[in-house]
Design a protein around this nucleic acid. Sequence first.
DNA 1: GTGGTCTAGACCACA
DNA 2: GTGGTCTAGACCACA
Lengths: 124, 124, 124, 124
Amino acid sequence: MDFKSNETIYSQIIEYIRKQIFSGSYGSGTRLPAIRDLAVKCKVNPNTIVRVYAELSEEKLIYTDSTNGKFVTADRGFIERKKREYLEEKAAAFVDEMRQAGIGSEEAIEKLREAFRGEGKERR
Amino acid sequence: MDFKSNETIYSQIIEYIRKQIFSGSYGSGTRLPAIRDLAVKCKVNPNTIVRVYAELSEEKLIYTDSTNGKFVTADRGFIERKKREYLEEKAAAFVDEMRQAGIGSEEAIEKLREAFRGEGKERR
Amino acid sequence: MDFKSNETIYSQIIEYIRKQIFSGSYGSGTRLPAIRDLAVKCKVNPNTIVRVYAELSEEKLIYTDSTNGKFVTADRGFIERKKREYLEEKAAAFVDEMRQAGIGSEEAIEKLREAFRGEGKERR
Amino acid sequence: MDFKSNETIYSQIIEYIRKQIFSGSYGSGTRLPAIRDLAVKCKVNPNTIVRVYAELSEEKLIYTDSTNGKFVTADRGFIERKKREYLEEKAAAFVDEMRQAGIGSEEAIEKLREAFRGEGKERR
DNA sequence: GTGGTCTAGACCACA
DNA sequence: GTGGTCTAGACCACA
């Protein structure tokens, strides 16, 4: 876990958790890492994780079971909807950037295909 | 111009200028907006623009002609290389995010094509 | 039984019991629910109820009959005095809040009358 | 400023600010005390005030003008609606407490009138 | 000077 | 052990 310096640490961790939930690494209904554990793993202060979990709770992706810990929402449909939203936003943002930089859709998509293939090779 | 709250303003303005240069809106060799003007346009303190131009100078995308102001580098090849780098980084970042969120390449590219089409329509 | 998150749970349960005693639901001299039962009802750890009963004992509203359990005080006069005090405190607190919020007594009392009527209707 | 121990400090300060806004002590469009100043006044840590202002911002009662400070919303109608809501909630809560404690509406309202008169005398 | 983020760490309620 | 609140205080971006 290392962080970009121009973005807030907590928002980067939020994004990280969100993606773990979308990918199923943190499955629906599953217990999330304890605040202090995640703080150690991310090498940040527990308060920062408190904030991360607070925002994800507000977003309803996770909930608190008082002293038992934090859990991923049991509502799989909700996660799916959020995941679709996430894809749409990221796609729109990417397209927007390309357009602003004057890069055509063909060229951008070609490069993305390459990148996807590259990722694939690395995984094997 | 409105800014995301999780990123520093100056880094967002840098990105903005960079894209203007890549797209040719700020053409090679061309004079950049005066600090005060850009500050007004961005509703930002001139100091912030000073910092933006300083970082872009360090990156060699722009240079200072002492009394005449800031100019986009005359080296078109350099701009092209930077533009390609930009595309590669953005593509890699996008792919990385999709992979982490467990979204397949086919689905992602399909959504991107949609987004590109959507953008196109809006412009007409 | 659900609890406000900005107040300690034990203080909310104390308030609850106190009101049960004032209303006569837990009559003078009567046996209070066993710790375990109340804990189950409130979905709370028995330790929390222990604390609740301890504080109410200190306040003399209840007492412990060693092996037989906890009982509401037999002193009806004491309960009446406490109830009057309770009313006075609540009324003073309400008035204080209204004054701080710049709400006039006429308006406040009018709204209270409405609320009392609403409660009445719901009960039928 | 002294705080009840069974309630969270930040929620008590939120209530305080809210009432100042409702009463017009902090007028619509007006600048709120700086975080550090209010922290000193309340004898709490600045972070606690940060949280207070954050929650009031979410509620739209106040907003942030980047480095200029925090301001009460300019929307007087919104404040009025919130004030009405506040009165309704407080009245409902009071009535609920009275009912649970077995105190009749006549008695409660009589005591409230007294309390209002008492307040009035103090003010003279 | 203004707000925002973050750290290190204490202390509490609840289980 | 779990989360929640709070403190003291640093450091940063922005004006």
